[in-house]
């Protein structure tokens, strides 16, 4: 079974937000909402400040609390690659999934259902990368099967130092950040 995930190189990312804009147009995300976003975290004292720039989104966790919290089964794992999806026609908009997500990756679509990153499943099923990955001018984002040791993402994880977000929240996130 494939396990889709992303590996994002924070050393190369400049935080331009092209990934965010591409997601908005590709997926027709309503104005004022975002399925992905840029977070910049600066630490340390000037001029020895460290900066990590990250393109963030739903982590498509293997132990996704949003899926367990959903009372209707609208939040579910997709057959292909364990992508976490929301079935709009099953979602009642109770927001339990939103409260259960440590990444705050979900939001209520103006039409009432809960929405979030889909890893561009419609593109992935055609063999394409998600829109955010495919537009990135710095080539800092990589998408692929984390369970396949020969995939680009697995190789990157084997060769570079990396971390994921809030592993302590215990959700087994599938997006990794190269340092």
């Amino acid at each position: 079974m494939a396990r889709f995930g992303m590996v994002i190189d924070t050393a190369k990312c400049v935080g331009c937000a092209d990934c965010v804009v591409a997601c908005e147009t590709e997926n027709n995300v309503p104005e004022g909402y975002a399925r992905d976003w840029i977070k910049q975290v600066a630490t340390g004292k000037f001029p020895n400040t460290q900066l990590e720039i990250r393109s963030e989104r739903c982590n498509h966790c293997s132990d996704a609390p949003c899926v367990t919290a959903c009372p209707t089964g609208a939040s579910h794992f997709h057959d292909v690659g364990g992508i976490v999806l929301v079935d709009h026609n099953e979602c009642i908009g109770c927001k339990a999934c939103i409260a259960s997500c440590p990444y705050d990756a979900r939001f209520v679509h103006p039409e009432g259902y809960v929405d979030k990153c889909t890893f561009c499943v419609h593109r992935v099923e055609e063999g394409l990368d998600p829109a955010c990955v495919s537009v990135c001018p710095t080539h800092c984002m990589h998408f692929g099967d984390l369970d396949d040791p020969n995939s680009e993402v697995s190789k990157l994880l084997n060769s570079r130092k990396h971390h994921s977000l809030l592993p302590e929240a215990g959700t087994k996130p599938n997006i990794f950040y190269l340092i």
């Binding site: 209707t72 908009g93 009432g112």
Partner: peptide, 26 residues
């Protein structure tokens, strides 16, 4: 009133999600 997708509220009762307290509750 809190539900954002009200017309679909009946979906609560077409399934039972054993891991979801909200499903138990309903």
């Amino acid at each position: 009133l809190d539900l954002e997708h009200k017309p679909y509220v009946w979906r609560l009762y077409t399934t039972f999600q054993i891991t979801s307290p909200m499903s138990w509750g309903s």
